[in-house]
Amino acid sequence: MVEIRWVTGDATSPSAEGPKVIAHICNDRGGWGRGFVLAVSRRWPEPEAAYRRWYRDRGGNDFGLGATQLVQVAPELWVANMIGQHGIKTSRSTGPPIRYDAVRLCLRHLAAQAGRLSASVHLPRIGVGLAGGCWEQIESLITGELVGRGIPVTVYDMP
């Protein structure tokens, strides 16, 4: 049985052989500039550029809560931009921007794409930083939607 593998390290440098997908949560307002996306953008320009185009052209595509965009950044490496956050947290926010139902849909889409690529999935503790989510709920979604479908998952904690 596949289980989540926990490592200390940088999720933008996945420690595995074969095809890999680095997954992270994005907001539905077109904002890219805080949190894990900064580490992604330092390594590759393509995921940010693709996300901004996806948002800009949202009237004619699937951009929105629950959508997942896969962006290839190397021969066996993709970044998954997953729309699981409604807006951004502000001083006037009444609750966290994370949307668990959207994260579930994103992970379901990711499972299908990772399965098609025979890829493992690598991520930080998504949805708990700027999105304000509860890790136990997110971990349960990852277990159900990815691990439960046989997708190898590695979660990275920074040292």
Results as ranks from 00 to 15, higher is better:
Ile83Trp: 00
Ala16Ser: 14
Ile25Trp: 01
Thr94Met: 11
Val103Phe: 09
Ile88Tyr: 06
Phe36Asn: 07
Ser15Ile: 10
Thr12Ile: 04
His109Trp: 07
His109Phe: 11
Leu65Ile: 05
Ile83Asn: 03
Leu77Trp: 01
Gly133Glu: 01
Val155Tyr: 05
Gly129Ser: 08
Asp28Asn: 14
Leu105Asn: 01
Pro47Leu: 08
Thr68Ala: 09
Arg52Asp: 00
Asn61His: 06
Pro75Asn: 07
Ala74Phe: 11
Tyr100Asn: 11
Ala16Cys: 10
Leu105Ala: 12
Ile22Glu: 00
Asp10Asn: 12
Glu17Tyr: 08
Leu110Glu: 03
Leu110His: 06
Asp10Gly: 09
Gly115Gln: 14
Gln137Asp: 04
Asp62Glu: 10
Asp28Pro: 09
Gly30Thr: 04
Cys134Ala: 09
Arg43Gly: 05
Lys89Tyr: 09
Met1Glu: 06
Gly60Ala: 14
Ala23Gly: 08
Ala102Tyr: 06
Pro47Val: 10
Gly115Leu: 14
Met82Lys: 08
Leu105Asp: 02
Glu145Asp: 05
Ile98Asp: 02
Arg56Phe: 10
Met1Leu: 15
Ala131Val: 12
Val147Cys: 02
Arg116Tyr: 03
Ala74Tyr: 03
Gly18Asp: 02
Gly129Asn: 05
Ile138Glu: 01
Thr68Gly: 00
Gly133Arg: 11
Asn61Cys: 09
Pro159Gln: 10
Thr154Ile: 14
Thr90Met: 15
Val7Ile: 15
Trp78Lys: 06
Leu146Asn: 01
Pro152Arg: 13
Ala49Glu: 10
Ala111Asn: 04
Ile151Ala: 11
Glu46Val: 14
Tyr156Leu: 07
Arg43Tyr: 02
Ile25Tyr: 00
Phe36Asp: 03
Ala67Asn: 03
Cys134Arg: 15
Arg149Leu: 06
Ser140Cys: 13
Ala49Leu: 14
His24Asp: 05
Gln85Lys: 12
Glu46Arg: 13
Ala23Asp: 02
Tyr51Ile: 07
Asn27Tyr: 08
Gly9Met: 12
Val21Asp: 03
Val73Pro: 02
Trp54Met: 07
Tyr51Arg: 01
Thr154His: 08
Ala49Met: 13
Ala67Phe: 01
Val155Ser: 04
Cys106Pro: 06
Ala131Glu: 11
Pro97Trp: 05
Pro47Arg: 06
Arg5Ile: 10
Gly59Val: 15
Glu3Ala: 15
Cys134Gly: 02
Pro152Leu: 13
Pro14Glu: 07
Gly33Gln: 15
Arg99Asp: 00
Glu46Ile: 15
Pro96Gly: 09
Pro97Val: 04
Gly133Ile: 07
Cys106Gln: 09
Ala74Glu: 10
Ala102His: 05
Cys26Gly: 00
Val79Asp: 00
Gly127Cys: 13
Val21Glu: 09
Cys106Phe: 05
Ser93Asn: 09
Gly18Asn: 04
Arg149Met: 04
Cys134Val: 10
Pro47Thr: 11
Gly30Asn: 08
Ala11Lys: 06
Leu117Glu: 05
Gly59Lys: 14
Gly35Tyr: 11
Thr90Ala: 14
Val71Gly: 08
Pro97Glu: 04
Arg56Thr: 11
Ile4Asp: 00
Glu145His: 07
